[in-house]
Design a protein around this nucleic acid. Sequence first.
DNA 1: TAGATTGTTAATCGATTAACAATC
DNA 2: TAGATTGTTAATCGATTAACAATC
Lengths: 212, 212
Amino acid sequence: MPKNENVSKSVIRRLPRYYRFLGELLAEGVTKISSRELAERMNVTASQIRQDLNCFGGFGQQGYGYTVSELREEIGAILGVEEHHGTIIIGAGNLGRALAAHFDYEKYGCELCGIFDVNPEIAGTSIVDMKVLPMSDLDSFCSLNRPDIAILCIPKSAAAEVSRRLAKLGIKAFWNFTHYDISLEDIDGAVVENVHLGDSLMALCYGINNKE
Amino acid sequence: MPKNENVSKSVIRRLPRYYRFLGELLAEGVTKISSRELAERMNVTASQIRQDLNCFGGFGQQGYGYTVSELREEIGAILGVEEHHGTIIIGAGNLGRALAAHFDYEKYGCELCGIFDVNPEIAGTSIVDMKVLPMSDLDSFCSLNRPDIAILCIPKSAAAEVSRRLAKLGIKAFWNFTHYDISLEDIDGAVVENVHLGDSLMALCYGINNKE
DNA sequence: TAGATTGTTAATCGATTAACAATC
DNA sequence: TAGATTGTTAATCGATTAACAATC
């Protein structure tokens, strides 16, 4: 069904937001919505919504609009939200622990199945009923559980080596919270999402000093 | 000195990355770099670097290139990294605690000066030598310390009300980790950086299913 | 001076918006 | 059928890249 035409990077980055807003509408009991109404709510243009959706196929009905539940499911399918990608966290420091305990992976099509740390004092402790494993268990764990996604919460200095190792173990995607820009050559074929919280905070600071 | 011409949103979002790479170069003892060399290292075009920098003024020397330390300082000044913006965290759950303990605020021109939580059991505990304060202390704390930035690590349901309250107390910038899209009307004049980690993870999942 | 590399203008490319015919 | 709203094409806008004159 999906035609996947002209799917640009910016379209993809907007899909999760559509998915989120459609979820809200659904929770409010809204069953039908037009591109104009959704645009107003999301603070974008109706043109953009229609253009974006049409990269993947016609999900609406002329003269009527879009069925909220249907559209949400279609976008969910495009994003792969029903897939339950096996996910591991590398590094059980503060951030790793926060992402283990705080984050609703199921909601985003993922399933946390392992947490690892090099520090032998940390490995062995538990976070939300999940035991932190030593890095020496990584190879056997991956061949057994075949996780898709690795969340990197390790120091910058370890990022290059660890990401190479994980790529060899079959990891397909890196959610990278380190300050290291993972090089695509190191992780052959895998995809990366660099979060770079520091960059985000600095962009915010710029805004304070340069309010137009 | 800075001319501030044609400074687009995308240019601003690239500035922190330039700053980061220049810091690395400095640490490696590199004193001089050309746009071509920097471009290669950062995986962008030399044209873009020159174009970006020229929004703010001529930081280079024709026939020579850019002095690393000087360029880094100029970009730092544009971003406001030397300012030490007072920063408070609202919500001392897992994420709030991680951001309190894990993050090097000084490095990004900020200074963490307070952590707040509604839960009376959490308020009173300490994180990295900083006492978590009850939300009832917020007003007096803000009039005394005048923080610029609020980091929102609270449930979505509280975001609208709390951000309105903070804006009235003089907060100029919101680093928003909630799943709520803060409306600009609520926080008159303040700037917002929505992090939306869930969106980021979903975009990553899309990548797994749709490797080109 | 000759070589190198910037600052800046012009050309290209892509993304967003507007318009409208198709159709429910 | 008439009204509404999509799907899609065309027009606009902005951002990126290429080119080159200025100049160190």
